[in-house]
């Protein structure tokens, strides 16, 4: 698994980093910590808030493990040619994680575009990103970043709103097709949090597509076979938004974002951001 953490210098990014550390501790994923700054000359760039925050995040990340437990502890290193400016390469000794890759990157430009480009270049399976809590799905200085990342990412996105224990994963099934990758992502979340799964099948005016109903049963069987506690219930889509705001307190809301999604049809574009705003806890958007 490859995880991309994208953060700025605000507290919600610190929460997102902690969630990234928790995920990395269990999965031993390859991890990239990414910050995005405005384009400035190199010397000015290193003193920008994003680069300072990244240094702090790198220390926090690497110091979370004891030496013998860390798959990211740096090994002996090898020499590589690194471009330092146009047409000039310098041979530098590069340290890499003993067992898993750990990278810290700073990009310049539009934050959401740079995050999405990095996730594509790196082949990320999951983007972890923080979001301001109070009725928002925003970053402080670049309001639309979480919303744009969720809307346009190729992979799953975990939006972290604050640090809190997760006891239940509430997954809302509104389409017949779900990817194997998304099920695997839920499996990892269940394992990491020791959580049970609450599976909600969404219907409209009392009708549920046959494919959704069939999938609901298949998923129930899949988890029962693996001795994972699962509760399945049906809900009308018109009640869904209210339930998110009222019921979800210590839960992780998991949404499938697909072309055939009922939520996609029922709500206008940007509905994920609307739900993330309503939801007081973290949200996993799966593809």
């Amino acid at each position: 698994m490859r995880i991309l953490f994208a953060g700025d210098e605000h507290p919600y990014s610190e929460y997102a980093l902690k969630e990234t550390i928790k995920l990395a501790m269990n999965t031993w994923a390859d991890v990239t910590l990414l910050g995005v700054s405005q384009a400035l000359p190199g010397s000015a760039l290193v003193n920008m808030p994003a680069s300072k925050a990244l240094r702090h995040y790198r220390e926090t990340f690497l110091n979370s493990w004891s030496y013998e437990d860390s798959p990211y502890e740096m090994g002996g290193g090898k020499y590589e040619w690194i471009p330092v400016k146009n047409g000039v390469l310098e041979e530098m000794k590069i340290l890499t994680g003993r067992k898993k890759d750990f990278k810290v990157r700073l990009r310049t430009g539009n934050p959401s575009r740079e995050i999405l480009t990095e996730s594509q270049d790196d082949g990320s399976d999951l983007i972890v990103i923080g979001s301001a809590k109070e009725g928002k799905c925003e970053w402080v200085n670049a309001l639309l970043v979480p919303q744009q990342v969720v809307d346009d990412a190729d992979c799953s996105v975990l939006i972290v709103k604050e640090q809190q224990p997760v006891t239940k994963i509430v997954a809302c099934l509104d389409q017949g097709y779900i990817s194997q990758e998304s099920l695997e992502m839920i499996n990892q979340m269940i394992t990491i949090h020791g959580a049970c799964l609450d599976l909600i099948g969404l219907s409209q005016d009392g009708d549920m597509e046959k494919s959704v109903y069939t999938r609901l049963i298949e998923i129930g069987d899949y988890y029962s076979d693996r001795q994972i506690e699962i509760n399945t219930r049906l809900m009308d889509i018109s009640d869904f938004e209210q339930v998110i705001a009222q019921e979800i307190k210590q839960d992780l809301l998991a949404l499938w974002l697909g072309k055939k999604s009922l939520l996609n049809r029922f709500f206008s574009r940007g509905w994920v951001g609307r739900f993330v705003s309503k939801c007081p806890t973290s949200v996993l958007v799966m593809r």
């Binding site: 698994m1 490859r2 269990n26 999965t27 031993w28 994923a29 390859d30 067992k99 082949g123 399976d125 194997q180 990758e181 998304s182 695997e184 992502m185 499996n187 990892q188």
Partner: peptide, 12 residues
């Protein structure tokens, strides 16, 4: 030799 958590890309 290695420990890989799912999901993973085939390239990985």
């Amino acid at each position: 030799f290695d420990f890989i958590a799912k999901p993973f890309k085939l390239s990985e």
